[in-house]
Computed example of a mutant assay.
Amino acid sequence: MGYDAFLEIDSWKNVKEVFKMAQFVVVNRNVESREMLKLIEEKCNKFDGEAIYLKVPNIEISSTEIRKRINEGKSIKYLLPDKVIDYIQKMTYIEEIDNMIHKIEQKLKEMLDEKRYIHSKNVLKAAIELGKNFNVDLEKIKIAALLHDCAKNLRDDELLIKAYKYGIIVDEIQKIQPFLLHGPVGAYLSKFEFGIDDEDVFNAIYYHTTGRKDMTTFEEIIYLADFISIDRNFEGVEEIRKKAFENFEEALLMSCNSTLTYVINRNLPIHPLTIEFRNWLLMKGGK
């Protein structure tokens, strides 16, 4: 323990018992002096104990300075062990994401109706559980899941207007079914309205309805979490939920097949991205 702390050992509870149970090692960053050694000896004599004095180099490292550098975004390399730095950075990152999520939730409450907001929270929960099985950034997964439907409550005309505003190429299927634009428009809203400038989050939101070939695992997690969230109650969803944690790829194919069945039964056009997504799943072995 530090020399200054050792001098205040009188304030400890049952200090005599502590001296009986252990031998103190007293360190000091300052120059050794006879007065200092004398005070250590006096404390030991007072409590019938022993202490070893250890002189260490006078390295100018202050916990106050370290906290200050962290708050200012400055490097703390060489001031702490690498593993400690990694842990601090991870905890700082998680705290920043938690604050960001709180702000997102407050804004979403203003943009979405209650049913859609609850769905978004449920997708977040499902995405976290799915994400635990993969090497993905769970903090980013939370953001993408929460924001995936941020444009869902926009009217068809509003979706088209925003699509043109953001330079989204609106295809013939989307002109007939503008609701399919809530993914692409939502991706741009996440970037420009919520300040989330992240490619993984952007693409996961953009393609969460249609899917696409060559989806990343990150995108697939959001796609499937949207499909199996606890508020969904369509026929076959329980089987897909179960399969999602047994065979992720097969669950994706089941979800895509379910979407196609829904669209075909209603005699609606199928978006080419969904067809490409299904064929890609089949080609890579989801069956």
Rank of each mutant, 00 (worst) to 15 (best):
I118M: 13
I196Y: 08
D137K: 06
K83C: 05
V123G: 08
H102Q: 07
I66E: 05
I176F: 05
F194N: 05
V185W: 01
L130E: 06
T64R: 15
D86P: 01
V84R: 05
E105T: 10
A151S: 07
E172K: 15
N99P: 03
I66D: 05
L146W: 11
G73V: 02
L108N: 08
L108V: 08
P81L: 09
A187R: 01
D113L: 06
A144H: 06
E129P: 08
M100C: 11
I128E: 09
I97H: 08
Y78E: 15
K90R: 14
D98M: 03
E110L: 12
L79Y: 13
A126S: 15
E172S: 15
K191S: 07
M100V: 12
I169H: 08
E193C: 04
P184G: 09
S120K: 05
T64G: 14
T64K: 15
Y164S: 10
I161L: 12
R67S: 14
I176N: 02
H119Y: 03
D156E: 13
I66M: 07
N122T: 08
G167T: 07
I97M: 11
I118T: 14
A145I: 05
L189C: 08
H119T: 01
A144D: 02
F192K: 03
Y78W: 14
V123T: 15
K162V: 00
D137H: 05
V185G: 04
V136L: 05
F179T: 00
I85S: 05
I169L: 10
I169K: 12
K115H: 14
H102A: 09
E193Q: 07
P184K: 09
L124P: 02
I141F: 02
L79I: 11
I88W: 04
P178G: 07
L138N: 11
E96D: 09
T92Y: 07
A144W: 08
E129M: 13
L159N: 01
K142D: 12
G167I: 09
N99Q: 13
K103Q: 10
G186D: 00
I88T: 09
V185C: 04
E114I: 05
E72T: 00
G73M: 04
K77G: 04
N122I: 01
N135W: 06
D157A: 00
D157K: 09
E129S: 13
I66A: 06
K152V: 04
N153R: 02
L181T: 04
I76M: 03
I85C: 04
Y78P: 07
Y93G: 11
K109I: 12
I70E: 14
G167K: 08
Y188P: 00
Y78V: 14
N122R: 13
P81A: 10
F192M: 03
D137G: 10
M91G: 00
H182S: 05
